[in-house]
Design a protein around this nucleic acid. Structure first.
Lengths: 156, 156
DNA sequence: AGTGAAAGAATCACTTA
DNA sequence: TAAGTGATTCTTTCACT
C-alpha cells in the first residue's frame, strides 16, 4: 500500500497545467511554476508512480470520427449478487461503445454513456446489451442533443 | 467550412493508438502502422488542423486529488428560450466542478456530471447552481458509488 | 512516403542549497 | 529533502527526394 500522496502547491500547479495540455514541454511548465525543468520532471514522474496521474491521452472529436450520437442508458437490475455484478462489469468492458459505466446509488443501478454512429447502430448496441446482460428490470435510453460542456480537467 | 476529413485505415490506426497513449513516440507509432515517423507525423498534424484530434490531455485519478464524489444531476427547466439557454451555458462553463453538461432530448433537459470533495461540497455546489440558474423546474441528484468503466477512447 | 539533418525535449548523474 | 547544471540520448520537425 502506497502512502497517501502529499501534493504541495507546485504539484497542483503542474497538474493544473498538464491536465489541460499534455504537450507542454518541461521548459514551459518550469517557466510557469518558477522552477527549472528537472524538478518539474521529477515531480511529474513521482505523481505518475503514485497513481495521481492516470495517463496521457489524445482526445478526438466524436462527430469527426463518425460517432455523433451520444446516449445515456439508465439500468435497473433484478439480481444484485456479486457474481452478477462481475459478469456485468466484464460485459461492459468488452463493449467499446460504452465510454463510461457508473454504479449508482438510488433509483438507478447503473448509468452508461455510449457513443455510436446513428440510431440503427444504437439499436444494434441495445440488443447486444440486453442479450449479454440477462435480468435487466428496466432500461431507459436518453439521447443527447448537444454537448454544452465537456472537460477532463478536474477542479484542483 | 473545412471539407469533411477523409480518414483512411492508417489514419484510424494511428488514432486508435494515440487515443490510448499520447506519449507514444512517432517511431513507436510508425513501427505499429508500418510506416516511417515522418508520414505519421504529417498525418497527425493534418488531423490536428482538421479538428479530428481535439487535444492531448493528462488524466488524473479523481480520488487521489481529493475529488472522490461524482454526482449526476438531471435538470428540468421551465424557460426554453434561446436567451435562457445561453445564460445557462455560461453559468455551467464558469463552474469547474461541472465536468460535463449535455442537453438532452426527452424528459430530462440537461444532464451534468459533477466532481466534488464530499457531500458538504456537493451541497454548496447545489446551492450555487440553483442560485445561478433561475427557473429550474426540477433537479434530481444521483450519486455515483463506483466507476465500473471510464475511457476517453472512442470505438473507431 | 522516405531520407537525413537540424532543432528541440526528456532524462539522468552529479552538484549545490 | 528539494532544486539546479550540464551532458547524453531520444524525439520532433522539416527540406529535399
Amino acid at each position: 500500500m502506497a502512502t497517501a500522496p502529499e501534493l504541495d502547491l507546485t504539484d497542483r500547479e503542474i497538474l493544473r497545467l498538464i491536465q489541460r495540455d499534455a504537450t507542454l514541454s518541461l521548459a514551459a511548465i518550469a517557466a510557469e511554476v518558477g522552477l527549472t525543468p528537472t524538478p518539474c520532471w521529477k515531480r511529474i514522474r513521482r505523481m505518475e508512480k503514485e497513481g495521481v496521474i492516470a495517463g496521457r491521452v489524445t482526445l478526438l472529436d466524436p462527430a469527426r470520427v463518425g460517432l455523433p450520437l451520444s446516449v445515456f442508458v439508465a439500468l435497473e437490475i433484478g439480481d444484485h449478487s456479486a457474481g452478477w455484478i462481475e459478469t456485468f462489469a466484464q460485459a461492459v468492458a468488452a463493449m467499446p461503445e460504452v465510454l463510461e459505466c457508473w454504479r449508482m446509488g438510488g433509483d438507478v443501478d447503473y448509468l452508461l454513456r455510449v457513443a455510436v454512429e446513428d440510431m440503427p447502430a444504437y439499436d444494434a448496441f441495445y440488443r447486444r446489451l440486453t442479450a449479454a446482460v440477462p435480468g435487466l428490470r428496466n432500461v431507459t435510453s436518453r439521447f443527447a442533443m448537444e454537448r454544452v460542456k465537456g472537460t477532463t480537467a478536474l477542479p484542483i
